[in-house]
Simulated assay, not measured.
Amino acid sequence: MRIARWDADGILAEGFVVGDGVVPFPDGLTVADVLARGLADAHQLFDEVRDADGTPLSDVQLLAPLVPAAIRDFVAFEEHVEGISASVDGKSEVVPEWYQAPTFYFTNPHTVLGPNDRVNPPVTERLDFELEVAAVLGRASGIGESNLTAADAASVIFGYTIMNDWSARDVQSREMKVRLGPAKGKDFGTSLGPWIVTADEFAPCVDAESFLAIRAEVFVNDELIGHDLVSNMGWPFGELVAYASRNSRVVPGDVLGSGTTGNGGCLAELWGRRGELTPPPLAEGDVVRMVVEGIGELVGIVGASVPAPELPSARVRSRARTREDRVAP
């Protein structure tokens, strides 16, 4: 099954993609409602509408397939870490700590973009894409939301979508020298889409170690830049979910990105390996197209950068200040 959200002549609708058309959920349900009910209920809902007259996909504008509860983005591909470390530090390496746990950061659920949307980055000289597959969580009967085992965590994966973690690499590099972030180098836009494909559709693609063995590719202006197998992750998706739930909570509607694939899954990896900005950073008008086996394709367009109001630098003052230094009222 494919789950989507779309705009039809200014009217928002949410439902199933059936063949080459879209059909709303019964009873006015939303994607959030369906995720909260879980995959078994989604199949029942699909049976209710599978023969209904739909609207052709060509007559609607697809939106991001959900409004995420939260977005965690992992760094699960060893090859990507090798390349990106050379881009940042001039030294290609994978630190021992990477192997110990699947590290992630939280990004902004309020700047999510959909298929064919324009991204308007901050002022940057090194705009980049990141080719990822993301797991979308739903409800699994009887399963808690905290400290899940890997097996139980896999059962809360409702489906998968494509994710493009847009990145301003120069801004990101400055931020991470403070040993925190990324922040403004990332949170201006994350593209998701074109729809959610339910996890059961991928059963034939799961290998003996629970990895999702599907091909992912990325093109810039129709030139193939990178490709990889998603099964080259260091951890399968169930283990990413389990780690996210450790001493915390995961809920339906959470999105967990795989992190950037290897073998050219982003430009910065290639810059690090080649020691030069080849291919060049993204520029206004560039079209980034990501294609993932079993899901489809997600297109994003680079729009104009948006200058932000200036802020002053930190005030470096004496640390010997006292309460008496206050200005009297």
Results as ranks from 00 to 15, higher is better:
Arg179Gln: 15
Gln100Cys: 12
Gly264Pro: 07
Arg274Thr: 15
Gly28Arg: 13
Glu223Ser: 00
Phe202Ala: 09
Ala8Cys: 09
Leu192Arg: 03
Glu276Ser: 08
Gly90Ala: 03
Gly15Cys: 03
Met176Ser: 05
Ser248Asp: 08
Phe202Lys: 06
Val23Phe: 08
Tyr160Ile: 07
Val94Asn: 00
Pro26Tyr: 14
Asp117Met: 08
Arg37Cys: 05
Ser318Met: 04
Gln61Asp: 12
Pro307Gly: 13
Ser141Met: 15
Ser92Tyr: 03
Met1Leu: 13
Arg319Phe: 14
Glu97Gly: 01
Asn147Thr: 12
Glu175Ala: 05
Phe129Met: 09
Ala203Cys: 00
Pro194Tyr: 13
Arg118Glu: 13
Val250His: 04
Pro204Thr: 14
Leu192Phe: 06
Gly38Trp: 10
Met1Tyr: 09
Val250Trp: 09
Val156Gly: 00
Trp6Thr: 05
Val18Lys: 04
Thr149Ala: 00
Leu12Arg: 14
Ser87Val: 07
Gln100Tyr: 12
Asp165Gln: 09
Val67Ser: 10
Phe219Leu: 09
Gly285His: 03
Glu132Val: 05
Leu282Pro: 10
Val133Arg: 02
Phe74Pro: 01
Val251Asn: 03
Thr55Arg: 06
Ala4Pro: 07
Thr190Gln: 00
Pro68Met: 11
Ala151Leu: 15
Ala168Gly: 02
Val81Lys: 03
Gly264Ala: 05
Asp53Phe: 08
Phe158Asp: 01
Leu63Gln: 12
Val112Met: 01
Val119Phe: 10
Ala101Trp: 10
His227Gln: 14
Val255Glu: 02
Val306Ile: 15
Ala320Ser: 15
Glu276Trp: 05
Val251Ser: 10
Val255Ile: 11
Ser191Cys: 08
Ala8Gly: 00
Phe211Leu: 10
Gly300Gln: 06
Asp254Trp: 04
Val23Gln: 03
Ile157Gly: 04
Trp166Asp: 04
Asp51Lys: 15
Arg326Asn: 11
Ala283Ser: 13
Arg139Asn: 13
Val197Pro: 04
Val299Cys: 01
Gly294Leu: 15
Trp195Ser: 06
Asp325His: 11
His227Lys: 08
Val316Asn: 07
Leu298Ala: 06
Arg215Cys: 08
Asp51Phe: 12
Thr124Asn: 04
Val18His: 04
Gly253Val: 02
Arg323Leu: 15
Asp128Leu: 07
Glu201Gly: 01
Arg321Glu: 14
Ala308Asp: 05
Phe74Asp: 04
Gly193Asp: 09
Ser318His: 15
Phe74His: 11
Asp117Pro: 02
Gly300Val: 08
Val31Asp: 01
Val60Met: 12
Lys186Glu: 15
Arg215Ser: 09
Phe211Gly: 00
Phe188Arg: 01
Phe16Gly: 01
Gly28Lys: 12
Arg273Lys: 04
Ser313Val: 13
Gly262Trp: 04
Thr278Pro: 00
Ala4Trp: 02
Phe77His: 03
Ala8Arg: 14
Met290Asn: 06
